[in-house]
């Protein structure tokens, strides 16, 4: 039972974080609060992917003794370096997340210019001139 918790508790924590973000996107009425919830949701997914790459007893994926030892080929022990592929994909995902954040904030600013409020229910009840 304890081994099950030690092996799986991180996934449960990420799901809790993701559901906090989902609740922020659905339940909050303010537009900036919705954007905050979207940011939390995205980073929970990125956290999940980075945690897939972990290996017990592995070090960071930068090869040791790679330069400065002549030309002999060093044998790389794959199990002692953590998996680099999810890191690359999530590096892309972080930058895309920030660009979506920028577009969402631009739309929020335009809504504020037009309706003079950011609350969703006030915008929905606005009489169209």
């Amino acid at each position: 039972m304890l081994e099950l918790i030690a092996g799986k508790y991180n996934y449960w924590m990420y799901i809790v974080l993701m559901m906090i973000g989902l609740y922020g996107m659905m339940g909050k009425r303010n537009l900036i609060k919705k954007v905050v919830g979207m940011s939390i949701f995205q980073s929970a997914i990125i956290l999940f992917y980075v945690s897939i790459a972990c290996k017990k007893g592995g070090t960071i994926p930068i090869l040791e003794h790679a330069h400065g030892h002549g030309h002999e080929e060093h044998i790389v022990h794959v199990a002692s370096y953590i998996n680099p592929l999810p890191h690359v994909l999530m590096l892309t995902a972080i930058v895309v997340a920030v660009s979506t954040l920028g577009v969402a904030l631009a739309v929020a600013i335009t809504v504020y210019r037009r309706y003079n409020t950011l609350e969703e229910d006030e915008i929905l009840g606005f009489k169209n001139e």
């Binding site: 030690a6 092996g7 799986k8 991180n10 996934y11 945690s51 897939i52 790459a53 972990c54 290996k55 017990k56 007893g57 592995g58 994926p61 930068i62 090869l63 790679a66 330069h67 080929e73 060093h74 790389v76 794959v78 199990a79 370096y81 953590i82 998996n83 680099p84 592929l85 999810p86 890191h87 690359v88 590096l91």
Partner: peptide
């Protein structure tokens, strides 16, 4: 969590780790 034999770290990432010095001469695999 942290299983070295998980499916994500068996398919294509050993190729990157083993051949990156020969192919690109960069020790930072990422």
């Amino acid at each position: 969590w942290g299983d070295p034999n998980s499916p994500a770290s068996l398919h294509v990432s050993p190729y990157y780790l083993e051949n990156t010095m020969h192919d690109t001469a960069t020790p930072n695999v990422v």
